[in-house]
Write a protein that binds this DNA or RNA. Structure first.
Lengths: 340, 340
DNA sequence: TTGAAAGCGCTAACAA
DNA sequence: TTGTTAGCGCTTTCAA
């Protein structure tokens, strides 16, 4: 069974090829009765357009490329699922382009990509989307793109992001509501915009309750298990220990749990530990980690919508769309012990 | 700057388009000097072929589709990386098709996919590749495919897999070499071929050392954290406890660690726990989990090679290519306590 | 509201 | 060894 072509449909419907094309593209000025005839023929022949031919002629490809440089497989997995779900609704395909955001050739790689692979638009995840040179290149080349989990605003491109600061405030308030005041904070990797936003949220919440932040309670981290471990070791051998540790992500929180276990500190009775991101590990560890979940799937879907609007040169009502994180309480954080 | 076409190259090199096409396709019977001229023109114009046009004309798309139904993001992530790396070498693109292996419409979804999306071949991961109806459909439709991590042989398609049985033997031997004889085993989900292979390896190793397997030491699991927890609870409240637990994957091993911690059983001094798959969690937990690592990246690369050979109708010397797992010793397993 | 013809960039078939 | 011509399946332009 050779695949049906537009010609077969035209013949079957008794109209010209062009008319079929008009129906397929939802162009106006087609008589309803004609449209019906064509649609019937399409259905009977199980006709689907050859995307290659469409792309060739109209200089479109219905492909969008996801550029990512993120060591968190769970995040990428969920992101892809969200993108795929929306792409398939809108008739687009997804191309993957992993990269290293620190690669000195990043700009050339991206330039090569947009010059030589057919695609209609790009989805950039952080931290690549926060790279100004990359954004400028894309604007110069006229390649539509949308930013995901971004931390820099940009008038030339739409973006979606989670309000990290707000979420960090909520988490800090949660710890305070459990009675904690001696709260330590482990920062993330300085290359990531989230690092600062999360820290600022922590500071703001502490300030709003007039709780002083002990400078020895703030440690640098790097979003890795080992960096969480190291920070925790410093925090927990101090004479004046915190009663709660807010880690900027779950990997580091897992590192904190390790150190606590080694030092014989019981979590959550002697120490509350919270993380960020709702990474799979936060449920696969004991105690399971109280954390903040980004709606990654929805973020991704919305980014695709924004990108497709941009591709089709439609109005983008909101340039940067904000999402909220969800506080997920698990076993690693609890009320402070009174008789301490 | 409009993109250069094959016409521009032909003009610049002073030859016909067909000659350029010959050079691009590495066809024989081109005079070396002509070839050089063309290659120079290609380089100067930074010409790259328009894949859409190639695909349309030659009825190829240089797209391969990965069909997966696997809840382990780390596995998929690594698999994609391996596939992408090899695809880019061979000039192919990757399309993603997540699915649910239990979906009653799976067959129709795949039929629709191969009928209506241009692609040259399919990569099937387990358990989808072990579905005979799916394989028969693809053979019937003449769509080339390769199987990844497969457990059924198939004369009509190439495949790559890890020798799970061998790996399980190695792990069991490892535990035995640490002095353990009271070894429990938690099986995986019965829908996955790995489940049986891993169990058989365990049994074989035990038998080879003439160690009897206590039937109460074998529990059903489902590859989930909760199922590991449940199995461990049953195992560890018995009067006659095992001194080591071999979990069929890391998620379940993490569940075992939780129960051990709750029951005050120290790992690894009082109990050794080992897993399988080298999932990220195995390093993000304390004690870190001794496990088996599949060379997923290499598996994926090889599968792409096999598939492309199949697409190009080249000889496939080896139909099913075997890989070995690597035993990774971490903190969760140690020598048995003598003075028990 | 509809159609005829041209052509997107490339390769296959055939000819020279 | 190289070139000419046609055409993949569709959309665009222009005309009716």
């Amino acid at each position: 069974m050779a695949k049906a072509t537009i010609k077969d449909v035209a013949e079957k419907a008794g109209v010209s090829v062009k008319t079929v094309s008009r129906v397929l593209n939802d162009e106006p000025r087609v008589k309803p009765s004609t449209k019906e005839k064509v649609e019937k023929a399409v259905a009977e022949l199980k006709f689907k357009r050859n995307p290659l031919a469409c792309g060739l002629r109209s200089n479109q490809s219905f492909v969008v490329t996801l550029i990512y440089s993120n060591p968190n497989p769970g995040y990428i997995y969920e992101l892809q699922n969200g993108i795929l779900s929306q792409c398939s609704k809108l008739g687009y395909h997804l191309q993957l382009q992993p990269c290293d955001y620190k690669d000195p050739n990043l700009l050339e790689i991206i330039e090569d990509l947009i010059e030589h692979t057919p695609q209609d638009g790009l989805l950039l995840t952080h931290p690549v989307c926060d790279n100004q040179a990359v954004r400028e290149l894309l604007v110069k080349k006229g390649m539509p793109f949308a930013r995901i989990s971004t931390f820099r605003e940009d008038k030339n491109s739409p973006g979606v992001y989670c309000n990290d600061k707000l979420a960090a405030i909520e988490m800090t308030n949660h710890l305070i509501s459990l009675g904690h005041t001696k709260i330590a904070f482990i920062k993330g990797h300085p290359d990531f915009g989230a690092t600062e936003k999360r820290y600022l949220g922590f500071l703001e919440a502490m300030k709003s309750w007039d709780i002083e932040v002990n400078p020895t309670f703030v440690k640098e981290g790097a979003f890795t298990f080992a960096s969480g471990e190291e920070a925790a070791r410093k925090l927990l051998i101090q004479k004046d220990k915190p009663t709660a540790i807010f880690s900027s992500n779950d990997y580091m929180a897992a590192g904190v749990l390790k150190v606590a276990a080694q030092l014989g500190i019981n979590v959550p009775t002697d120490l509350s530990v919270v993380g960020y991101d709702d990474t799979p590990v936060s449920q696969q560890i004991w105690p399971s980690i109280t954390t903040l979940r980004q709606p990654i799937f929805e973020l991704a879907q919305t980014a695709v919508n924004q990108l497709v609007k941009k591709i089709k040169k439609q109005d983008i009502s909101e340039q940067d769309i904000e999402f909220k994180c969800e506080l997920i309480t698990r076993a690693s954080a609890g009320p402070i012990k009174i008789n301490k």
